[in-house]
Write a protein that binds this DNA or RNA. Structure first.
Lengths: 213, 213
DNA sequence: CCGCACATCAAACTTTCGGTTGACCGGGCG
DNA sequence: CGCCCGGTCAACCGAAAGTTTGATGTGCGG
């Protein structure tokens, strides 16, 4: 083992979660929590200033930059620390965004502490660390490609989420109702649901569309 | 100050959050974390066995009983500990359910530690502890009772937002479809919409219900 | 005690949505 | 070039959602 501890940066908007991570990780002799950030912007700033080996990054911050954007900003720099995403949701959109942003791992917050510590060591060693459940979801996606919604399908789905009827959507987009239905049928198939409200719920959960707020 | 510490029970499905709460609260000289529960069921069990003054209760557990149900179960017993709800969302549906279940307070997880400690002391003293943002929402509701949704209506609407059909909702809540429709008709009238998706969109915009994410 | 709000249910009705089938067109690619 | 995919549309039918009317029970406050 190395003689210098692994220096960690904790990025989460919840003080309670930061305290929990600090308590759990500082208990490990080879770890050293060297900084905390309550916003994604602050995490990018601190990571750029150097002095960290691994960043533990939340995805959903109350306000401001999203964790995946921060991850991309951090990993884009040469000699950047490894970023380990630690979040509550294991949705496809979140996982893919994190992986594409260059995350070295993806863990769920309900993971037991020893699993978390192991993942940090794996990431520090330059390897990938995916939670079993997350790895499983990625495998699923690979097995069934063509899950991605087309631009037009997302456009229709967004309007459904805004509360419009097929009639209203068809007028808004200068389409026939038949076309709107056609798009929605494809959306239902891709999302694995069978109603418009379920499609919206699934799409919001996967961050495919935005919900006002 | 009293000579005996306030004994706490932490109920949250995330080990990290429990560790964080423990770290933050054990630092207070007059607090003593006397137990942890990873499920709502376990929290009810432990609370019933006695030995706690205040329960810190999360609302969303990954599986099993909901936090508001657990709160109701705990506060229903004579000599029960005070329950302080500590969650991520400040929607009407969650807040009303918690308050009606007998919660002594409602805090958000992004609250600073000292606010949390203060709320625990307030709850232990037998008073109500509401986060400022939450208190404000409750005030708003009182001021405009006309279009306020009843608890039952919110409950139905939340399930609609989760993508369930009337049939599924009726089974989930042990109602007839007629009753579900009846509630929705009232919801539509109060929100000024005329479809379920529009109702969900309006409710999310007004933060009446929670949309995952 | 009476009224009112809330929650519950029933039945019949209209409208919208969901699912299917089939079709046309334009563009990208082997 | 021929093929497939994305986007467009039509007609149809059954299922679900939404509308209307009306009714019952319960609890709370004037």
């Amino acid at each position: 083992m190395s003689t210098t501890p692994i220096r960690l940066l904790l990025a989460d908007d919840h003080p309670i979660v930061r305290a929990g991570l600090r308590a759990v990780l500082d208990a490990e002799p080879d770890f050293s929590v060297a900084g905390e950030a309550a916003t994604a912007e602050r995490a990018v700033e601190l990571a750029a200033s150097g002095g960290f080996d691994v960043v533990l990054m939340d995805l959903q911050f109350g306000v401001g930059m999203h964790g995946s954007a921060a991850t991309a900003a951090i990993t884009a720099r040469p000699g950047a620390p490894r970023v380990l995403v630690l979040t509550t949701y294991d949705t496809d959109a979140d996982i893919l965004a994190a992986v594409e942003a260059g995350a070295a791992g993806y863990l769920l917050k309900d993971a037991p502490p020893q699993e978390l510590a192991a993942a940090v060591r794996t990431a520090a060693a330059g390897q990938s660390a995916l939670a079993p459940a997350v790895a499983h979801r990625l495998m699923d996606r690979m097995r069934t490609p063509a899950q991605a919604l087309t631009r037009r399908e997302l456009e229709v789905l967004q309007l459904v989420g805004d509360g419009l009827s097929n009639q209203q959507i068809s007028k808004r987009l200068f389409l026939s109702q038949a076309t709107v239905k056609s798009h929605l049928v494809h959306v239902y198939a891709k999302l694995g649901v069978e109603s418009r409200t379920a499609a919206v719920a699934a799409a919001v959960a996967r961050r495919l569309i935005r919900q006002q707020g």
